[in-house]
């Protein structure tokens, strides 16, 4: 397994490079001058030129990219054009919030989706299945910005149970932190929970019809044991695959959820940076998110072997 991990880690490098080239090009193709955005419409042309020079933005694009890459290879992701904060420091400050949000959203999704999916599969065509399926479709269909506003209206304005905004970091207290994270996590997890529930149901239904399950039943193993010990484990492989791929969707969703609930996460950092054309911040943060996505999917690949002993890595 170790050589496999090393091969995958090495393969990460060109992917990460490609991501940085694409982000760099997209940012520079997009109209909008960061200096003009910073100085506003009333800045004099001299001031604009001076600032552009001081930020190296008057140099050719390949030189700008080369400079960025050289520094990044040495662990320096540059500084924000707007706030002058080191990008690495900004990412380290903001990333834990995004990680916490996505991890909790994934956890909540699983807590809801796995039991619901299993029950829905085991009690196929029952009233329970009939109730869960439309709920899942609603969950997938609801845009997170709308759900977020709805939850705020319900649980913050109408029932003053949770604050509308105001993040409390984990270090300041677990309960306070969870209190501020409840609505964002609910918002972000809705779509994933619905999707995982549907996939769990479909996958389990398929596995339950396989020979080894029938054999287990014939041997007199009880229903719940067959489902949980024998069928579910195999049925989880597509679920885990989807979870890995959905990490990207969750990180993308975090951008919206962080903006709605004013959470100081990496998603909001990217949004603000894109609007300000703050190139180094966008580059660095997207790179960090891309590496996270790659690592999560590497973890998912390794998890397959745990779930199904027939899978081997060479």
């Amino acid at each position: 397994m170790i050589p496999y991990i090393i091969r995958r880690a090495v393969a990460t490098v060109p992917v990460a490079l490609l991501v940085t080239v694409m982000v760099f090009l997209l940012l520079h193709i997009t109209p909008g001058d960061p200096v003009v955005i910073m100085l506003g419409e009333e800045a004099s042309p001299d001031a604009v030129a001076a600032l552009r020079h001081s930020l190296n933005l008057d140099r050719p694009l390949p030189v700008q990219y080369g400079l960025w890459l050289w520094r990044a290879a040495h662990g320096d992701l540059g500084a924000s054009l707007r706030t002058h904060d080191p990008v690495a420091r900004l990412i380290l400050a903001r990333y834990p919030t995004t990680l916490e949000l996505t991890a909790l959203a994934m956890l909540l999704s699983l807590c809801i989706a796995l039991p619901a999916g299993v029950l829905s599969a085991v009690r196929r065509n029952s009233w329970l299945d009939a109730m869960v399926t439309p709920l899942a479709i609603s969950g997938v269909s609801m845009p997170s910005f709308w759900l977020g506003i709805l939850l705020i209206w319900l649980f913050s304005v109408t029932l003053p149970w949770f604050p509308t905004v105001g993040f409390v970091p984990l270090r300041s207290g677990l309960l306070e932190n969870l209190h501020t994270m409840t609505l964002p996590v609910m918002t972000l997890s809705a779509a994933l929970a619905a999707l995982v529930m549907r996939i769990t149901r479909a996958s389990l239904l398929q596995v339950l019809q396989q020979d080894y399950v029938r054999t287990a039943r014939a041997k007199g193993v009880r229903g719940p044991t067959v489902v949980i010990r024998h069928a579910l484990r195999t049925a989880l492989i597509p679920v885990v695959t989807v979870l890995g791929l959905q990490t990207g969707t969750l990180l993308g969703g975090a951008v919206i959820v962080e903006s709605i609930f004013a959470l100081p996460g990496a998603g909001r950092l990217i949004v603000d940076a894109i609007f300000a054309r703050d190139f180094p911040v966008v580059q660095g943060t997207v790179l960090a998110l891309a590496i996270s996505f790659i690592l999560v999917n590497l973890g998912v690949d390794l998890l397959y072997a745990r779930l199904d002993p027939r899978i081997r890595y060479g």
Partner: peptide, 19 residues
């Protein structure tokens, strides 16, 4: 001073007493 980028959430925040 709390940053709240979504204007609708900002209105709800003052309505709920969060700000």
């Amino acid at each position: 001073y709390q940053g709240i980028p979504d204007p609708e959430v900002k209105a709800n925040a003052v309505r709920s007493g969060t700000i």
